[in-house]
């Protein structure tokens, strides 16, 4: 079974945290030139066979190769249209809040948001003021996962297996109860609404990664 050694484990959680952060960044605000440049270096492909990630990666590659001068503006317009509800899809944007996807009336600030607040609180963390969005915003939920990954990674470094285990449990729980309860639908909406291949790709990769991460943290082996 090839058990991982401590160093590899620590690295694994760092890596996962990094992906969560990267995904969070995509939803947090519009793209900027620097990040766009960096994306060229990003390699999502490797040995993954999950179709969503493969397809997402392919679209992303095409977009990056073909993007024109106005790419940043196009992406900003698409961002506003998909996530800010400003555009021809007005009324059925992919609003990046768990509450919208899980409350019957599709409203913000419903039970899911309250639960998210409670969970963050239990971790003694709260929202940074400058990002004035409800706590169930996808960027925050993804960041929270990154935060938990970081904590796990640190626990492993300290050889505190109990802490690492408990932290992993929290990740599973949050992933199951929150992210996976709505992000699949949300990503489907993004793919449907997005005008650019970029956000279609990001949605596919997000979905693919969450599925992969679910299987991995739950110890399933279906990702092969």
């Amino acid at each position: 079974m090839n058990e991982l050694n401590t160093l590899e484990l620590e690295q694994l959680f760092s890596f996962r945290g990094a992906i969560y952060q990267l995904l969070s960044r995509f939803y947090r605000r519009e793209m900027d030139q620097e990040l766009l440049n960096q994306l060229h270096q990003l390699e999502f492909e490797a040995d993954i066979t999950l179709p969503e990630i493969l397809e997402g990666n392919r679209l992303l590659k095409i977009f990056l190769a073909q993007m024109g001068e106005n790419a940043l503006t196009d992406l900003a317009v698409d961002y506003a249209k998909i996530f800010l509800g400003a555009g021809p899809t007005c009324g059925e944007g992919a609003y990046p809040y768990e509450s919208v996807y899980t409350s019957p009336d599709r409203l913000l600030m419903q039970n899911a948001r309250d639960q998210a607040v409670a969970i963050y609180r239990s971790e003694d963390i709260r929202l940074e003021d400058s990002f004035n969005e409800p706590e169930d915003h996808i960027a925050i939920e993804l960041t929270f996962m990154a935060y938990l990954c970081q904590k796990t990674s640190e626990a492993i470094r300290r050889n505190d297996e109990a802490a690492a285990n408990s932290c992993l449990l929290k990740q599973r729980q949050f992933l199951q109860d929150h992210l996976l309860s709505w992000v699949p639908n949300f990503c489907a909406d993004v793919q449907r609404i997005a005008a650019t291949d970029f956000y279609k790709a990001i949605a596919m990769i997000t979905y693919g990664f969450l599925i992969m991460d679910r299987d991995m943290t739950l110890g399933k082996h279906s990702t092969t």
Binding site: S14, F15, G17, A18, Q21, I140
Partner: peptide, 25 residues
């Protein structure tokens, strides 16, 4: 596999990056 995906992401977003500051302890 994760390493392959994440390695490049990690180089862009080492933990402790500005994004994570969104959740200030």
């Amino acid at each position: 596999k994760v390493a392959a995906v994440a390695g490049s992401a990690a180089s862009l977003f080492p933990l402790g990056n500005e994004v994570l500051k969104g959740l200030a302890t």
